[in-house]
Amino acid sequence: MGNFKIGVPRALLYYEYSLLWIDFLEGLGAEVIVSSPTTKELLDLGVKSAISEVCLPVKVFYGHVMSLKDKVDFLFVPRMVCVEKGAYFCPKFLGLPDMLKSSLSPLPPLIEPTIDVRKSATNFKNAFLEVGKSITSNSKKIYCSFIQAQKNFWLYSAANKLEEGDLNQLQINQPINKSSKGEGISLNVALIGHSYLLDDSFVNLNLISKLKKAGVNILTAEMVSKKEIEKQLKKLYKPLFWTLSKKTVGAALYFLEKKIDGIIHLSTFECGEDSLVGEIIRQESHKYPSVAYTEFVFDEHTGEAGINTRTEAFLDMIIRRKIYESNHT
């Protein structure tokens, strides 16, 4: 096959797997077109084409698909079911290709491998190799391309992890200089939640740059090792069975245990996982009164002004609390 274009929507699990996907597809000789970052127009497109009950991130995904569909020969939309024993993705990932095909037509053909490691231990690899076959007949090229992409992907995720002891270096619970009234200290605040909320600055209304501007040192679940997350999750009486939420809850428990200054849980209004997971984190946070905890709930109507106010109030609260504590110890 000659030069053809494969579209990858910059939404949902793109934020977890983009490196792997893009490297692999490009390695096969395809031209990969990633949709541009989310904008108002894009979101509006999504809102118009999806049913209203669906969660914001899926609407955003629809928007990205709409923006790509006339520019590419194929769309890459894997059906992500299960990538680890005992945990799934949420039902919307299980039915994502079908939802798209049902509500958006005409669409270019979808490349929709089903990733489900319950079927066999090598399913993950096989699904990719299968995709490769539909693109090129050179099986060596397919294999090498997958191995290379996977290697890069692993290297990248490992590079982001906090080394054991890193958190201490961040001087958690930095004492506050009484006279400074909280000026010039940097707060350690963790942002937790689905990566497609955290990493899409349009959806989270520039929360990260706001916090950075306020001098906040931002921590995320990406920085916590998988082993540590699994360890933290043992605290739950019943194991969680959602891959994405496991990461969120495990990281939240870790940051609570490390008594960092604050945690913000980013969630979306119609998300099935967040409604229960939010409750767990909220309850666990009661056990660590020194850690400030709040939840920011996003939907397509959330306004930037509201988030600004809430962010300021949250940071203020942490600083006031720290001043109070330093005055009383």
Binding site: I51, E53, V54, K92, D98, M99, K101, S102, S103, E270
Partner: peptide, 29 residues
């Protein structure tokens, strides 16, 4: 129920089924 995960997928798909087969479906949330 409002925010039900599997049924929202189903609702999306059923819209298409209903169109294709000219078969009326009412979704109540």
């Amino acid at each position: 129920p409002f925010t039900c995960m599997p049924e929202i997928v189903a609702e999306t798909v059923v819209k298409k089924v209903s169109e294709d087969l000219d078969f009326p479906v009412l979704t109540l949330i």
